[in-house]
Simulated assay, not measured.
Amino acid sequence: MKRVKAEDTTISMDGPEVCRIYFETDKILFGSSTLLPGQTGGIDSGHPHSHEVFFVSKGEVLMHNTKTDEFYELHAGDALLVEEGEPHELTNIGMNKAVITWSCAPNPAAKA
């Protein structure tokens, strides 16, 4: 087993979205995104060979599939499966900070 503390994660920005990577192996990528009220993260073009699961840990977000123009309202405790190649972006529609965990399998950055 391996434990990772938030302060030991790799941090990046996707627009105003703060992204943290907790685990990365050939099989899975696991991280989190944080958005303040009203913020929209960058558009993720989707992963051609990976599924991505989003789980809302805190807050309320709107997931937009930018290819189909579909919207999914998600609240704390809700999850959403994004299939291969579906472009998407997150917007915090709540009044508090939103924290979303996500994982991709297989890891889209892994070498084949």
Rank of each mutant, 00 (worst) to 15 (best):
L29E: 12
L29S: 14
L29G: 08
L29D: 07
F30C: 14
G31D: 11
S32K: 11
S32L: 14
S33D: 13
T34S: 14
T34F: 06
T34V: 14
L35M: 02
L36V: 05
L36I: 05
P37Y: 10
P37R: 05
P37W: 07
G38N: 02
G38A: 02
Q39V: 00
Q39I: 09
Q39W: 04
Q39Y: 04
G42M: 11
G42P: 01
I43V: 15
G46F: 05
G46P: 06
H47D: 11
P48E: 03
H49W: 11
S50F: 07
S50D: 01
H51W: 07
H51A: 08
H51N: 15
E52H: 05
E52V: 04
V53P: 00
V53R: 09
F55H: 08
F55I: 07
F55L: 06
S57I: 12
S57K: 09
S57C: 13
K58I: 02
K58A: 08
G59M: 12
E60T: 05
E60P: 04
L62I: 02
L62T: 05
H64W: 10
H64T: 14
N65S: 06
K67T: 06
K67C: 07
T68C: 12
D69R: 08
D69L: 07
E70Q: 14
E70S: 13
E70I: 04
F71E: 11
F71A: 09
F71L: 15
